[in-house]
């Protein structure tokens, strides 16, 4: 016999197609308050999946259950086949977590922090390589308290990656960052994914989810109310097209009402907004052209994930979920 008996490691328990993260019917209550009612989703290897929801929707509790920081009241959670509740040790080796509002000791220096956290893992990444990847080489001897918000966030990401994880959870990654730092962070997350790390991104920024995520899971009041690609969710049920145009002279509305693909029209300031089927834009332009009219300006309006989110959740983003 020259068969090698493998220990039950991750490699053998996830033969490529098995989900990296699997959550089924997760439930968590604090006293009488239901934080997570019924959450199920999966994350495949190499994906960036966004967990979206308002503050208090149950996002953070969900990822805390993934990280083994919370004991669920019901349902099952698997990370690379391991149960974070009952068998947390392998999960801690394989899952990197960047938690919301976790600071470091004020006087701990950047390179020290990375080397320290690297020492906790069996097979860590090279701290020097991470310093370069995150653009922190110049800050290696800077104490944590002297870093800018963006630098702190990058260090936090580096610490989530220093254990050489197969999955990284990034919670409210860009909250409090300026627009420039946010864009840099997004580029970085894509680079991290390209290096083979599966990413679960918790956010309440729709633009962030639209930009980064392959799929999003929208949680509201502790339940998953929608999931899919950002594009699919944004288009929603009405797979139509909306555009606005500015005409050189007022238009007889009857001209457009007669076109089959037009479903609605309204005036928006000096513009006319037209919504309709897939061919509505060429149909309208041709009809106008046949009357000798050429729009001065045409602007197509893409439905955004934010619109879809507001439609799904049923209230504006600022409203308190209670």
């Amino acid at each position: 016999m020259n068969t090698i008996t493998r220990m039950p490691t991750v490699a053998s328990s996830s033969p490529g197609t098995a989900p990296v993260v699997q959550v089924v019917g997760l439930r968590k209550t604090y006293g009488s308050k239901v934080a997570v009612d019924d959450v199920s989703f999966e994350v495949a290897r190499g994906e960036i999946v966004g967990i979206l929801g308002q503050n208090g929707a149950g996002k953070t509790t969900t990822v805390e259950a993934l990280a083994g920081l919370r004991t669920a009241d019901g349902g099952t959670v698997r990370v690379l086949g391991h149960d974070p509740q009952r068998d947390p040790a392998p999960v801690r080796e394989l899952l990197g977590v960047q938690l919301q509002e976790s600071r470091l000791p004020a006087k701990l220096r950047v390179a020290e922090a990375l080397r320290l956290y690297a020492s906790f893992y069996a097979d860590p990444r090279d701290p020097e390589e991470l310093l370069t990847l995150l653009g922190l080489q110049d800050k290696r001897d800077t104490p944590y308290q002297k870093l800018s918000g963006g630098q702190k966030q990058r260090l936090s990401i580096a610490l989530a990656l220093v254990g050489n994880p197969q999955v990284a959870i990034l919670d409210e990654l860009t909250t409090g960052l300026d627009p420039q730092a946010r864009r840099e962070t997004w580029d970085l997350i894509e680079a991290v994914r390209d290096s083979g790390v599966t990413i679960v991104l918790v956010t309440h920024f729709m633009d962030e989810a639209e930009r980064l995520c392959d799929r999003v899971v929208i949680i509201d009041d502790g339940r998953v109310i929608a999931q899919g690609t950002p594009g699919d969710l944004a288009r929603g049920d009405h797979a139509g097209v909306t555009f606005r145009m500015r005409l050189p002279q007022p238009l007889d509305a009857a001209l457009l009402v007669g076109i089959d693909s037009v479903t609605s029209m309204r005036e928006v300031g000096r513009d006319l907004e037209v919504t309709g089927g897939a061919t509505v834009l060429p149909d309208v332009i041709i009809a106008l052209h046949s009357c000798g009219l050429v729009p001065e300006e045409v602007q197509t309006i893409s439905p955004s994930l934010e619109d879809a989110f507001v439609a799904l959740v049923g209230r504006p983003p600022q409203e308190d979920p209670s």
């Binding site: 920081l69 801690r92 899952l95 990197g96 470091l104 254990g163």
Partner: peptide, 16 residues
């Protein structure tokens, strides 16, 4: 302060 600032929480996600 280690609890207040989340040092303990971050540590709890690592093998340490």
């Amino acid at each position: 302060s280690y609890r207040e600032t989340g040092v303990l929480r971050r540590m709890a996600t690592t093998p340490m």
